[in-house]
Amino acid sequence: MSYFIYPERGIYHLPRKNILVLSCIDLRLTDNLLEFLHFDNLTNRYDHFALAGTSLMTQADNPELAVLLDHAKLESGIKSYKKWNEVWRDHVRIAIALHDIKDVYIIEHEDCGAYQNFLTKEALSAGEHSCHVKFSTALAKQIHQFRVDDHTIVTLNVHCFLLDLRGNIEHLYSIHDKALPRLPARKK
């Protein structure tokens, strides 16, 4: 039994098949991430891809969000950051081909070093939480109708979450291929 706070039942579709998880490289929350994936009945049913900042660098070519990145700081330390979205998208293609994924979990976390180091001061003035919502939601919208090749588009259910430093999960955003079913009221 988990003692963590997770999203309420019915907020998003629980995946029935294999999924792809995108998370940060932060070491502090690995066990909490796994606990949440087990809670959602995803044990041994996910590919895991980690990028510093989770969705942050996937948006380096997004004109609306690229202005929030400190490109001078990034270019001095991470010369390939503009290619991270391409690498991420290649991984999505592989996960679709090999494991027939239908869902993607984007799991951001608070107190993220990549956000604190690579966003402009102006961006962070709105608060780190707000930045996580902007970047993860933008990525979710980009990959919902995912172009595998010139002839194939796959619809993915995409779910964005924020993991806090105690292991609690906040649901930020989901985009589904169909409406959520009405769930019966829970008995108290």
Rank of each mutant, 00 (worst) to 15 (best):
E122A: 14
S80K: 08
Q145P: 02
G113M: 05
H129G: 06
S80I: 09
K83G: 12
Y46K: 05
H159L: 06
R147C: 09
H171M: 07
H13D: 04
E128G: 07
L172I: 15
H99R: 13
L42R: 05
K121S: 13
D177S: 14
F161K: 08
R9N: 06
E64Q: 12
T58F: 02
K188M: 10
K141P: 00
L183M: 13
A50H: 10
L37K: 01
A185D: 09
T43V: 13
A126I: 12
E128M: 11
H159S: 03
D26N: 02
I11K: 15
H48G: 04
N168M: 04
G10W: 02
K73L: 12
H171A: 05
K17V: 12
F36M: 01
T137C: 02
K82Q: 09
S130D: 14
C131R: 14
I106D: 02
Q145C: 07
L139T: 09
T58A: 06
L22Y: 03
L68K: 08
H171Q: 04
S174D: 07
L56S: 01
D70Q: 02
A60W: 05
P15D: 09
I107N: 00
Y81Q: 01
E75Q: 07
L22M: 14
H171K: 05
V158W: 00
D177R: 11
I96S: 11
S174C: 10
L51G: 00
